[in-house]
């Protein structure tokens, strides 16, 4: 009986949230009083397995195959099914990444079990896990329990666990190599190298002040209002996904899981509700100000200063006061 953590890397470099999943796994294994294994999947993963083995783990499981060099849902699901068959874990934990969103539901369906996705917290009652996840656009939290036979699968949201709290072991954990048979036809997809669209040029990660707009800005004609505030504060203008999807601001000004991750001194969120996909891109900001008409908007959960008001009333006044003090 064990907990299995599945790590993620891209061409030999750890995805930063992998060690957060290891930290979650250590907590789970302790609460469930069982052993903890961590899996690394890929081609030529000996170095990564050795690195992972420094963590406090019962064992590292390395699944190495030339066909696993690049991620494919078919290849990686087959690899992890093999690990599940061999280890018979009670709980399988993933970091919640785009790759995991592609992979883990398939794995769960193929074993016929639950996948509790994107947990922001985890606690245990009688040795059984209860996951906390956001629902209804982050307006509510839910305690979700897996049902049916194990293994139960879950993923943890970026930032929900601290990578630094993933403890090192007293000595290196043993590395077990799992052989997997993958034929030509077993992977049905072909994947290309990752690329960035050339137009993505603005780097917001260096900005000290960011004024960001969401659906509350209502129409493209109102963007100059936010722009004026950004200018008055000497900051950059950014937006949540729907604004860039609508073409009101270029995609390279998008903050969130599919856009940029920023941690400025000041993040001013105008008419942004605070959906998870946006919050993961800015929650590291030093000071967060939220202006929103809806007092129940989840953005207020992470704001240092909150203003429950119409942004069209408040923003012009902010620009006006900033103009006076010059």
């Amino acid at each position: 009986m064990s907990v299995l953590v599945v790590t993620e890397h891209h061409r030999g470099t750890w995805h930063r949230i992998s060690m957060e999943a290891v930290a979650a796994g250590q907590q789970a294994a302790q609460a469930m009083q069982c052993s903890l294994a961590a899996a690394v999947v890929g081609s030529d993963v000996g170095g990564l397995a050795g690195d992972l083995a420094r963590k406090r783990l019962s064992e590292v499981v390395a699944i190495d195959h030339p066909q696993l060099a690049a991620y494919s849902a078919d290849g990686y699901a087959a690899a992890l099914r093999k690990a599940i068959d061999d280890l018979r874990p009670r709980l399988v934990l993933f970091p919640h990444t785009y790759q995991v969103r592609d992979l883990a539901p398939k794995l769960a369906a193929s074993v016929g079990t639950a996948f509790v996705s994107d947990a922001v917290g985890m606690r245990f009652e009688g040795g059984e896990p209860i996951f906390v996840r956001q629902m209804f656009q982050g307006k509510l939290h839910a305690d979700v329990v897996p049902r049916g036979a194990p293994p139960h699968i879950a993923s943890v949201q970026s930032g929900a666990f601290r990578a630094e709290s993933a403890a090192d072991g007293d000595g290196p954990a043993p590395v077990r190599r799992l052989a997997i048979a993958l034929g030509e036809g077993d992977v049905r997809s072909q994947t290309g190298q990752p690329y960035q669209d050339a137009k993505d040029a603005v780097d917001l990660s260096a900005a000290k002040i960011i004024v960001s707009v969401g659906r509350g800005i209502r129409e493209p004609g109102n963007i100059p209002l936010a722009e004026a505030l950004a200018r008055a504060l000497g900051g950059e203008l950014a937006a949540s996904r729907p604004i860039c999807d609508s073409g009101w601001l270029p995609l390279d000004r998008q903050i969130g899981s599919s856009g940029q991750t920023v941690s400025p001194d000041l993040y001013l969120a105008l008419g942004i509700s605070g959906a998870i996909q946006h919050v993961v891109g800015m929650k590291g900001s030093k000071t967060i100000v939220a202006v929103n008409k809806d007092s129940g908007a989840p953005i207020f959960e992470i704001a240092d200063y909150g203003i429950v008001a119409d942004l069209f009333d408040v923003v012009p006044k902010l620009v006006e006061v900033l103009g006076e003090s010059d």
Binding site: A108, A114, Q134, L140, A142, E301, I302, G306, D313, V314
Partner: peptide
């Protein structure tokens, strides 16, 4: 395969200071 046991308002992660008054 999974069940929502309880739904609730999220706990405040930060102490938000709400500012009130005219614009």
């Amino acid at each position: 395969r999974q069940e929502v046991q309880r739904l609730y308002q999220p706990q405040q992660g930060k102490q938000t200071e709400f500012l009130e008054g005219s614009a």
